[in-house]
Design a protein around this nucleic acid. Structure first.
Lengths: 235, 235, 235, 235
DNA sequence: CATGAATGAGGGTTCATTCAT
DNA sequence: GATGAATGAACCCTCATTCAT
């Protein structure tokens, strides 16, 4: 039986970059009533945290509802189910980082300056948005099963590749970078160094008996990434 | 994991380095002897796969029993429960990689040769043992809660740091490497570049529309890691 | 996600004709422990009642567990789920009536005697097994969705058609029945008159203000069926 | 149904005989007038289908609202709730068939002609109004719990009994029918043969491997009903 | 040592209904 | 009158674990 009724409604919020501000509002004196947009943003923000912290399987719908301070039923009302909510979180996470990245405006900077900006931004973004790394980790554990469904995800990323490519070309032309670098490899190297440190710092801190969550260690690693990338780009 | 179940038994198997051989038996002519050891190895191997593929929360005790082709009750008999089994898997995974690493015998190689060997070995090990990365990912999602319990995990890693340190010192003395490099940072960089590519290749393949599971891409990335590390070490 | 794990186990009891005796046992002093056969029969008997009374959708898994006095979990252990349990009930119901019918041994009776026996048996069976009619009603509301899955259901019914066909042929040859009657139509007429009265007596009693659940009414209807069928068969 | 919800409102529409025309309006030139009546008829028509197809328990209030293309809240506004809506559907269904029947005007026909007319009409009505049989089936599964509440239901049916009684008396007097037939039994036989075939054809088609939804089969059964009834009435 | 039946505590999801606008 | 957001009570099902044999 179990005649699955099709989900009628999906997330309405295209731009999820401002998840953090979801709970702020013009009229705080009426906190949580009859406000569809606020409710759905609150659900998304709560779900992002829950999924990031516990993974898809470990995330609890009840916990999301509680975090969002909404009735569990609303989650189904707005998103249709755990799966669809997760997909919304996933897309929202990518949209958020790519939107922030786009604001860097790398094309108007010198190659060296732009590259440094990109590395520093990426590292800082990872630091400020641990949920993003958590979501990625979870999604990869599932071999990107959900992300593959997303039609627009590639288009979202082509500007990033173009901008890095542009930086590399200009850098090579100016003699700042060695020529022939693959922009995707560069980005992946930046992301690898940043992401690995932050997501794996718990086991790394244990096996090396060194608290990698200390500010000093974190700052040092940020500089390290810059050093590594520029050493690699050095002509 | 959230609901910490009291662990009643612990793994009885000290040396878990030979997980791979779990299902083979040294003396097939004596089929019913040492079944206890064989059973517990089968459980451990099955659990390693299951935990790596699905994470702690997603792993199913029934699935482990089925993979190991043993009665579920045996799992409790030998390991005491899901938690303890997971800890055994975790320790076993670290022991396995560190044991293999130790066999590299870096101290008898030239700095450049030894460093290349370490990078290549690490990359190859990650490629050959996807469970290892899966286990790490899971454990970090739990902020190394289980690993912290392990007393001997630090000792397991100090030889690694020493050997890298020795390589770096010898390399700096010989003028092959720039001086002052932190061996932990070097190892983390190697691991970061390898681990990130492999664990995140699913989402990366999707967002960049480039099949990173292709042999050519994998091989290219292996060389890329070597390039990056040596570029960074260049005096 | 919801990675549906395939049901591993199905009802083990092929012959479900003796559902009623499911709860009787040789050693009643140990009522409900570690007895797989008894447990699964108890579940089936309870499910048959529940599904018959409330339909598929209205039946509650909890209610079945309570009726069977077993832990709800066992129901999934033995049958895999509500769907599969329902299918087991459905098949069991058909097997039960066809088994009882087969014991009539119509081929050794005279055509008139045999036909009367069939009509009376059918009526009495419907009276004694209200669950059967309830199950049929439910299954038809779902347009036999589940029954269609059953491979063996047709074979189960061909002996019935053969036996009625034989009765009709012999009756026609003896001049007792008019020739050319369709055995399926005859059976359907018998079933129609019996089934309709019993399943619809609740509304019929109300609209005609006549208590059709009275023994006198029931007996009279039984005779009526015989009259109608024989009137139709009269040469 | 088990959980009796207190009915707060009742259907406002006394005459439900014209359910079929629910969505047509007499005066299309005044589009926004009498929308209340139109809305309530739309709800009723939608509910009739939904209840007939899925039963009381299986029917979804949301589905009814969607079918009727009205806001769910309106359903509560006009009918008070699922229970009361169901009762309205039930009464409407009976009123509809009895109204149509009354238009047969059996008292002005010869006994044989009238009886044939009644049989054919009933069969055709069942064919044309599958919802009616679905509603009856559902209501009987609940042992006519809701129908019993209806005060006027008996009066609705006494004309039918009278007319059949009149046919039988006139037929017996004319030597066309055997005397002493019970009009209720006759009607129930007609209904039984027609209803059983249609409601049970899904399982019957499966067990006898014969597609009873084929036009040929349906037509043949209609004739069969006439044959059976007249065989029974034959003096 | 080994088996598989049994269990209780949730997990995701759905439903009829009410409330604020 | 009409809308759709909000709710709490189930409902089906799953899981790690224990118990009897």
């Amino acid at each position: 039986m179990s005649e699955a009724r099709t989900v009628k409604r999906r997330a309405k919020n295209a731009d999820l970059a401002n998840i953090d501000q979801a709970s702020s509002r013009a009229t705080p004196e009426r906190p949580r009533l009859r406000d569809a947009e606020r409710t759905s943003k609150a659900i998304l923000a709560a779900a992002t945290k829950e999924f990031a912290e516990r993974g898809y399987g470990g995330a609890r719908v009840d916990a999301i509802a509680e975090r969002a301070k909404i009735n569990k039923r609303m989650l189904y009302h707005y998103f249709g189910g755990k799966d669809a909510l997760y997909v919304a979180v996933l897309e929202g996470s990518y949209i958020a980082i790519r939107s922030a990245e786009a604001r860097l405006d790398l094309s108007h900077r010198s190659p060296v300056e732009g590259m440094r900006e990109l590395v520093v931004f990426t590292w800082q973004y990872f630091l400020d948005h641990p949920e993003f790394l958590g979501i990625l980790s979870t999604e990869n554990m599932h071999k990107a099963r959900f992300l593959k469904r997303s039609a627009r995800i590639f288009e979202l990323h082509s500007p990033l590749v173009s901008e890095i490519s542009d930086l590399l070309d200009r850098g090579a032309a100016a003699g700042d970078f060695r020529p022939g670098c693959d922009p995707v490899k560069i980005y992946m190297s930046i992301a690898a160094l940043g992401s690995f440190f932050l997501t794996n710092r718990w086991t790394l801190s244990t096996i090396f008996r060194r608290n990698l969550s200390d500010k000093a260690e974190i700052d040092a690693w940020g500089e390290h990434i810059v050093d590594v990338i520029f050493a690699y780009l050095r002509p």
